[in-house]
């Protein structure tokens, strides 16, 4: 690949736009490169429909759409289902399953409705109550960052971690809520930060 072709690939990877849609002729080398670079996987199939609706509503309550996309826009519910199915270990998955079942049962008990049918304030109340009950978990410790998953963290912490991670590493979260620049071409260590400017997304180094 020459430099121009390589930059085209980088642009495609970042935009997520199919090459055919912008009528760009790709060389065989570029096709090979892009095929290897695309890690998108088949969707998970772990939740039933009711669980799926509740998980989506919880994720959206944690990271709602505002003037920028929210968890559902960013595909976070699918990410969570994938993580619960494939990434959590058995003990963590059991915590998740039980926590989700309890949340679904308790909203029926308290409000006679499922979580996703509640008013936003009621949804927040439910999650605040869960968080308050979980507040002793090591998950909330200062310094609990860049570390291994807190394996015994309660359901609400699992939901927050997976939602926040899934959101800010999603395409919508990275490019529309944070800022993303795959090919900066330069380094400026003294760029002004406006009061409303977002962090950079991505892997800095």
């Amino acid at each position: 690949m020459n430099r121009r072709e390589f930059m085209q690939c980088a642009a495609l990877l970042v935009s997520g736009v199919a090459a055919t849609r912008i009528s760009m002729a790709l060389s065989d080398e570029q096709k090979h490169y892009l095929a290897r670079a695309n890690y998108n996987r088949t969707p998970a199939n772990y939740f039933n429909e009711a669980q799926r609706r509740t998980v989506a509503a919880v994720a959206e309550t944690i990271m709602p759409a505002t003037d920028t996309p929210g968890a559902i826009d960013a595909g976070v519910p699918g990410f969570i289902e994938n993580m619960v199915q494939d990434w959590l270990n058995n003990a963590e998955r059991a915590i998740f399953d039980q926590g989700l079942a309890e949340l679904m049962a308790s909203t029926q008990r308290s409000y006679g409705k499922s979580f996703e049918m509640l008013e936003p304030a009621q949804q927040s109340d439910c999650l605040e109550a869960l968080e308050s009950a979980a507040s002793d978990s090591a998950w909330y410790d200062f310094g609990n960052t860049q570390r291994v998953f807190v394996s015994d963290a309660p359901f609400i912490c699992q939901m927050k971690e997976l939602t926040i991670w899934g959101f800010f590493t999603s395409e919508a979260g990275a490019t529309q809520v944070l800022r993303y620049e795959a090919m900066p071409m330069t380094f400026d260590g003294n760029r002004e930060l406006g009061p409303d400017d977002s962090s950079w997304a991505g892997t800095p180094y």
Binding site: L13, E29, Y39, R41, M83, F149, T169, E171, A174, A182
Partner: peptide, 24 residues
């Protein structure tokens, strides 16, 4: 070189588990 650097420039949303390390 180049062609097989398939992690290069892959944004988080194209990495497995969006970059969470596959522990198992």
């Amino acid at each position: 070189p180049g062609l097989d650097y398939y992690g290069e420039h892959a944004p988080d949303w194209k990495l497995p588990y969006q970059g969470k390390k596959p522990r198992e």
